[in-house]
Amino acid sequence: MPSHSEADRTLLTAAERGDTDAVRAALAAGARVEVRDTDLRTPLLIASLGDHVEAAGVLVAAGADVNAQDSREDSAWLVTGVTGSVAMMRTLLPAGPDLTLRNRFGGVSVIPASERGHVAYVKAVLAETDIDVNHVNRLGWTALLEAVILGDGGTAHRRIVAILLAAGATPDLADGDGVTALEHADRRGFEEIAALLRGAG
């Protein structure tokens, strides 16, 4: 990896801290907007991980690549599904994120968001992009399956199941073992989620 200039190092640090003024100053001093740290993370990815929306906006305006992936196959866009930040999602949209880009589990951003119970994010990303609600990851799971299998059956995950179904999620898509979301819900005693799935079937 090429050695970093002082401006590059300053930019990486500023992105991590969310110091927007320092981000601007580092760019003005010649920092590379696509400089990578030891984990191959760009300043934009670092800012996205920290939910530093204003700093990310400056980097997007400077032409940062929203699809650049690090050593863990994360990108600035993909991690919005992990953090659940609607503000960051909307900041990154003008940069043209590749909605088919996959994380290390073979998933798109709506899948981890569904697993983690990020209701507002799931609702926003489905309403404001054409992300594939039925995308299947390497585990054989869709967003709907993850919401049931890895969720807790509580209010957030019930709402996410309803949002996914309303957005066109296919309720009878089974996992790699041939088990559907409804069967998983029944097995886990998630009666309200099971009722939603039965109504959609």
Score class of each variant (00 low, 15 high):
residue 153 G to K: 08
residue 113 A to L: 03
residue 129 T to S: 06
residue 128 E to P: 01
residue 55 A to I: 08
residue 68 A to R: 04
residue 116 R to K: 14
residue 140 G to W: 11
residue 86 V to F: 14
residue 150 L to E: 07
residue 76 A to K: 02
residue 115 E to N: 02
residue 61 A to L: 13
residue 88 M to S: 03
residue 117 G to E: 03
residue 144 L to I: 06
residue 73 E to C: 04
residue 82 V to S: 00
residue 131 I to W: 02
residue 111 I to N: 05
residue 148 V to I: 14
residue 143 A to V: 05
residue 133 V to F: 04
residue 65 D to S: 14
residue 53 V to K: 00
residue 152 D to S: 07
residue 100 T to D: 15
residue 120 A to W: 11
residue 115 E to H: 04
residue 134 N to L: 05
residue 103 N to T: 03
residue 86 V to P: 01
residue 114 S to H: 05
residue 97 P to T: 07
residue 60 V to P: 07
residue 122 V to T: 07
residue 141 W to I: 00
residue 142 T to Y: 08
residue 81 G to N: 06
residue 85 S to I: 06
residue 157 H to L: 08
residue 137 N to K: 00
residue 105 F to A: 14
residue 58 V to W: 11
residue 117 G to V: 05
residue 149 I to C: 00
residue 56 A to I: 06
residue 135 H to E: 15
residue 60 V to W: 06
residue 114 S to C: 06
residue 143 A to M: 08
residue 127 A to M: 12
residue 56 A to F: 13
residue 144 L to V: 07
residue 91 T to F: 10
residue 132 D to A: 13
residue 154 G to N: 13
residue 117 G to Y: 09
residue 112 P to F: 08
residue 74 D to S: 10
residue 115 E to Y: 03
residue 106 G to R: 01
residue 133 V to P: 10
residue 147 A to L: 00
residue 126 L to F: 04
residue 125 V to L: 08
residue 60 V to Y: 07
residue 54 E to R: 00
residue 128 E to F: 14
residue 126 L to D: 01
residue 148 V to H: 10
residue 133 V to R: 01
residue 154 G to I: 04
residue 132 D to Q: 10
residue 91 T to S: 12
residue 99 L to W: 08
residue 55 A to L: 12
residue 56 A to Q: 10
residue 71 S to A: 15
residue 123 K to R: 15
residue 127 A to Y: 14
residue 82 V to K: 00
residue 157 H to R: 14
residue 148 V to E: 06
residue 128 E to W: 13
residue 100 T to A: 15
residue 135 H to A: 15
residue 70 D to I: 09
residue 87 A to K: 08
residue 51 D to S: 14
residue 67 N to R: 13
residue 121 Y to A: 01
residue 62 A to L: 14
residue 84 G to N: 05
residue 63 G to L: 12
residue 78 L to K: 06
residue 60 V to H: 06
residue 60 V to R: 00
residue 126 L to Y: 04
residue 122 V to F: 07
residue 156 A to D: 14
residue 116 R to G: 07
residue 134 N to T: 12
residue 91 T to C: 14
residue 50 G to P: 07
residue 90 R to H: 11
residue 93 L to A: 11
residue 104 R to A: 15
residue 142 T to G: 07
residue 98 D to F: 11
residue 126 L to C: 00
residue 70 D to R: 02
residue 108 V to Q: 09
residue 108 V to S: 05
residue 62 A to G: 08
residue 130 D to N: 12
residue 71 S to G: 12
residue 52 H to N: 12
residue 155 T to P: 00
residue 58 V to T: 08
residue 79 V to C: 03
residue 144 L to Y: 04
residue 143 A to R: 02
residue 155 T to C: 04
residue 150 L to F: 11
residue 62 A to C: 14
residue 95 A to T: 03
residue 98 D to T: 09
residue 148 V to K: 04
residue 126 L to S: 05
residue 136 V to R: 01
residue 132 D to N: 13
residue 75 S to Y: 01
residue 128 E to I: 14
